[in-house]
Nucleic acid binder design. Sequence first.
DNA 1: TCTAATTTGTGCGTATGTATG
DNA 2: GCATACATACGCACAAATTAG
Lengths: 331, 331
Amino acid sequence: MTAKKLIDSSAQPKYKQLIQGIEDAIQNGDLKQGDKLPSLNAVKMRYQLSRDTVLMAFNQLKSRGIIESIVGKGYYVKSENIDVKKRVFVLFDELNAFKEDLYNALKGSLGADTQVDIFFHHFNYQVFKDLILDNQNSYNYYVIMPANLDNTAVVMDRLPSEKVFILDQCHEEHQHFAAVYQNFKKDVETGLQQAEIHTSKYKEWILLFDDTRQPKGIKEGFESYCSQRKLNYSIQAKFEGILQISELYIVLDDRDLIAILKSGIEQQIVIGEDVGVISYNDTPLKEIVNRGITTISTDFSVMGERLAHMILTKKREQVENPSRLILRQSL
Amino acid sequence: MTAKKLIDSSAQPKYKQLIQGIEDAIQNGDLKQGDKLPSLNAVKMRYQLSRDTVLMAFNQLKSRGIIESIVGKGYYVKSENIDVKKRVFVLFDELNAFKEDLYNALKGSLGADTQVDIFFHHFNYQVFKDLILDNQNSYNYYVIMPANLDNTAVVMDRLPSEKVFILDQCHEEHQHFAAVYQNFKKDVETGLQQAEIHTSKYKEWILLFDDTRQPKGIKEGFESYCSQRKLNYSIQAKFEGILQISELYIVLDDRDLIAILKSGIEQQIVIGEDVGVISYNDTPLKEIVNRGITTISTDFSVMGERLAHMILTKKREQVENPSRLILRQSL
DNA sequence: TCTAATTTGTGCGTATGTATG
DNA sequence: GCATACATACGCACAAATTAG
């Protein structure tokens, strides 16, 4: 930033000229990582601008990760990479195989000039809160999976609501945020209904469900479906290791699925005849294993694409990402 | 506290830099319990600070119980127990199912007071470079997967080498960094050797290998093994869709594995008799699918635990994480 | 210990031009 | 022509953090 005439009354808005000027200074090496920028007041005086105009320019550079601010000290060059136009903060619950498709679809649909940073809260409220508060103002968009945590809206309201997007699980407290979510209760009910011809032979319905990590809606849908039809049903946290004839398992965690399949081999029980299995979340291997596992699953690639599309078109809405039943030999 | 440059005009407030410097000195043993700190005026002169800036740093350390002040004498180290919340920067190549075990083991072994942030470079050198440079100075440790990228040491040398740990793939240029790595060439050779009794019936050896994403060592090990034994072998980027009797596939990408298994069903070819399959990287489902897939695999949980242990014990070394052959019905 | 200067962060009010319907 | 929304630009006031004297 050298001459006064850097900011003129041309067609370009003043704050954009200022951004351009700083980008140019970084590109030709006048500003390097760690360098201090002139203070808001200094820039305001030098270029005869309003303080808020300078602030707007600096804020945009900040959300692109190019500069950072420290209260009481000043603005500093954080990154010399000025090609990144958008930065997206993604907060997932935990790392697992399903996140792969979701993340790849999201990243792919957003384009190469967008930087996607990913974090995990591991169902820990404090971690959830700290990560969001530590990173507010540093990103253009916030894509968040509140999962089954409570009181997350209080934290998320600290972010500008038009920058916030919710993934996968959306509660009442999130009504004012854009979202792509699963309707777990409905999906379980309709999924089980569609499978009815194949499930009638099973007499004991067992849902393997972990309250701390898994969506309540699945449990509610299961209970509602079973009680309406007066089925014998129970809910267990974990597969207990022994299969009984005519049991039907609804399995969320793949470790339980594997344990069941192993028990089937050991006990010489045929999955799909003696014992039924419905697994949540489809993966390619489930198409093959044991001649196919029946799944109820949403399409995570579509979910990622939809969210990316929402970000790109700025059309903020709440969309259900539908699940479907995929019938295979395990029923 | 050794050099003047400990306090610079960077983004960090000066009093925080001073606190950090004293914490570091305690952590690496330069300051021990009972040691006298330099006087306020001495520190002020040495680092060209205001007396109150030094006082602010000392007061905060005092309120945390790390130092104590005795009127008319000075400041003394009271406790070496600085419960600093550690921050670990983890840079992976891409998100996939194997990363789950690795990440969980690393995070679990480091403990709850450690924040682990994860990033992905997607085999893109520019992304690799920008992520490291943008996040230098912000973390206590840097755990990095250079994967098959070249000239990564140039970038990593910008970080303090005692804070850097390499995962999975380690090249000659990384000799001065601590590492937990796989010896892909050796692992493939010994794995194939151990499987020899079961592989002799196959006449065409095919490695499905993608140069851009996968470790060169695997290709080298395969070529060396096959040429030493004068086997008919070839390397393809992708499974071409049709199986021939007496082919043996070595598969790295699970999508290829699934495609092969599907072709087996369609073509009515029995995997493990007509066609052999060895898959890289074990997952629980591979124990089950098609009555078991033979794998050559390292234990990613162990890898994560070893790296965490190295960080916690400050024993910096280069360790091979062994792979082993797991024989199943697919041979 | 108190005061002061500088700096960022935030909220409120105002005004203008442009695009939309 | 009119109403509305949005982006741009300016001014002011106060809070909180940093640093110095």
